[in-house]
Simulated assay, not measured.
Amino acid sequence: MRSRHVSHVIPVTPEVVYEYASNVDNLPEWAAGLAQSAVVRDGDELLVDSPMGWVAVRFVERNHFGVLDHDVTLPSGTVVRNAVRVIGHPDGAEVVFTVRQIELDDAAFARDLEAVAADLERLAQCVSRKPGS
């Protein structure tokens, strides 16, 4: 299994990026690779209509370290653990997302990497146009 890190530098503070990205209600606005419509809450679990079909998502608790790790249970039952960090950068914040090649051939893995890069670009656009950012 291969892993790749996809990152994007955003010219706002890490706190602003984390606050926006950790709010699951914002997922459909920027994380099209995960949520294509409003998030449905089921206890600690989130149900989202994704490009892969309905999936269950569970995020780590909010924290002061910029950690946005989350497990995604695919329709196949496979659980994918996604490591995501919002870290300080000289130009603002850097979001780093580790993408793992689970249940994907090489072409699908390449598309997944592109989708994550596009999601991080949308995240940058969303937080950059927020008042006070």
Rank of each mutant, 00 (worst) to 15 (best):
D69V: 02
A35S: 11
R58G: 05
E45P: 00
F59C: 02
G88R: 13
V55Q: 11
T78A: 12
S76I: 03
E45W: 08
V80H: 02
R58F: 05
S76T: 12
G88C: 02
D49H: 12
L74D: 06
V48H: 00
V80D: 04
A38K: 15
D69F: 02
T73F: 05
A38W: 02
T78I: 14
G77C: 09
G77N: 07
R41V: 11
H64A: 15
V84A: 03
V86G: 03
R62N: 14
H89W: 05
M52N: 11
H89I: 06
E45R: 08
G43K: 09
G66R: 00
V67D: 15
L68S: 03
G88N: 12
Q36S: 09
V80S: 04
L74H: 15
I87K: 12
L68C: 05
G77P: 06
N82L: 03
E45H: 07
E61W: 07
G66M: 02
V84G: 01
S37H: 08
V80P: 01
V80K: 04
P51M: 07
N63M: 12
Q36T: 09
N82Q: 08
S50Q: 03
R62S: 14
H64Y: 13
T73R: 15
L47I: 12
R41Y: 07
G77T: 09
V86D: 02
G77D: 07
V48K: 01
V86W: 02
H64K: 14
V86H: 04
G88W: 06
E61M: 09
S37K: 13
D44F: 02
D49Q: 14
D49N: 12
V67W: 00
V67R: 12
